[in-house]
């Protein structure tokens, strides 16, 4: 579905992404892991159109999408969340969600004046949708709160909620789980699974929590220093010598399959354990 072909993204002397090639199969939940600064977010930024790559190509369903604008990709059903949550801080949570669907007729002044009933109908529909998402994310108590006042975890949920407002084809999740409590993390995992199975979404998710990755993702891609280090099933990855060396840390060697986030003295400093504590 998505083919990333030899992407390079350089910032001056920094080679944030240095020849990464990955393929995301339709209907999969592909995990993307790797140490901090491996270039994961940068690769997302290139795919989602936020950066124009120094070189390389990105294809969506066989069509080249390199260098398209984020909103053009958004309209093609390619959605992404941000590692550092973005929000419209002076709008309520509900309004934040309601901003998502593009091309609403109320955005044109002409329609607002000339076809108020059509605009109102559309707005009602989107409002109902937003309420559904709010219900799903279990945040009805802050529905009318300004998004700027949300907690870090709630902002993450809002990020996820945004992707549920429209029919997406493929969603790129950048650490949606970071800072979200355990119970809710489970709910989010279920939601992702359900969206994939019932609505045919494809996901690509960056996550540091190996438990979460192990349960959801197949395949898992490991990045380090701007390129792909390994790819395969979660269990294989966790046993891969190179990956353990670069990312998971030696503490896991004896106990394959266990969470990298387990406190273990030798556990890798890269996994942002602190952020995931509930």
């Amino acid at each position: 579905m998505i083919v990333v072909d030899d992407i390079h993204m350089h910032f001056g002397g920094i080679r944030a992404v240095d020849g990464a090639s990955i393929t995301i199969e339709k209907g999969s939940i592909t995990g993307l892991i790797g140490p901090n600064g491996a270039g994961k977010t940068t690769l997302f930024n290139v795919i989602a159109g936020n950066y124009k790559p120094t070189s390389g190509h990105v294809y969506l369903d066989g069509e080249e999408i390199t260098g398209l604008k984020p909103h053009e990709l958004f309209q093609r059903g390619l959605l992404r969340t941000f590692q550092i949550a973005h929000e419209f801080h002076s709008l309520t949570v509900r309004d934040n969600l309601m901003m998502v669907p593009a091309g609403q007729s109320g955005e044109s002044l002409m329609d607002t004046w000339l076809r108020p009933s059509k605009v109102r109908e559309e707005e009602e529909r989107i409002r109902a949708k937003a309420d559904e998402v709010i219900e799903f994310l279990e945040i009805p108590q802050v529905a009318d709160e300004l998004a700027g006042n949300l907690s870090g975890g709630q902002k993450k949920l809002l990020e996820l909620g945004r992707t549920m407002m429209v029919d997406a084809k493929i969603v790129f999740l950048d650490e949606v789980g970071a800072g979200v409590n355990r119970t809710l993390l489970g709910t989010i995992g279920d939601a992702i699974r359900r969206l994939q199975q019932e609505r045919g979404y494809t996901f690509c998710m960056i996550e540091h929590d190996m438990d979460f990755i192990g349960k959801l993702c197949d395949p898992v891609i490991v990045m380090a220093e701007g390129h792909v280090l390994a790819e395969g099933k979660a269990e294989e990855i966790m046993r891969n010598e190179q990956v353990i060396e670069a990312y998971l840390g030696t503490g896991l060697k004896n106990r394959p399959g266990k969470s990298a986030a387990n406190p273990d003295g030798a556990a890798p400093s890269e996994s942002n354990t602190g952020e995931q504590a509930s």
Binding site: K69, P70, H71, S90, E107
Partner: peptide, 12 residues
């Protein structure tokens, strides 16, 4: 006005 990038993304 709040967040240009995000607004652009949602097709504003």
């Amino acid at each position: 006005s709040d967040n240009e990038d995000l607004a652009l993304l949602s097709g504003v």
